[in-house]
Amino acid sequence: MIETVLDYASWASILGGLFFMVVGTIGVLRLPDVFTRLHAAGMTDTMGAGLLILGMSFQTVVGIMHGETSYWSVLIRLVFVYAFLMFTSPISTHALARAAIVSGLEPWTNDHEDDA
């Protein structure tokens, strides 16, 4: 019973992760400049990766419940992969934004109230 629930939850979060990943990618294509694109890039790093890894973790939990002890190490590695992504993603985002602004790129804007 609980295994079926975990299985469905796993597929749901993998599909959710794919959804956010594709939306983030569409954002990278659609948005107008590098700063706005970084917001979309952050989406793939946080929610896309997070939900996919959550879904895979559910699968390993199902495996553990079937008595496969080797899945414990898989679960630990998944947690580490996510932790690394969480710690490194904001730093590379910040480094990119900083490098772009230091090099003199002007952020794109559609604020025309100031001009009027």
Binding site: F20, I26, L31, T36, A40
Partner: peptide, 23 residues
């Protein structure tokens, strides 16, 4: 993160792309 992600996803999927980036 979840709340902010859903908000940004809505913005990106909106055909009008309602963004007003600012510093």
């Amino acid at each position: 993160i979840v709340v902010a992600n859903i908000a940004v996803a809505k913005v990106i999927l909106d055909p009008r792309l309602p963004i007003s980036p600012r510093l």
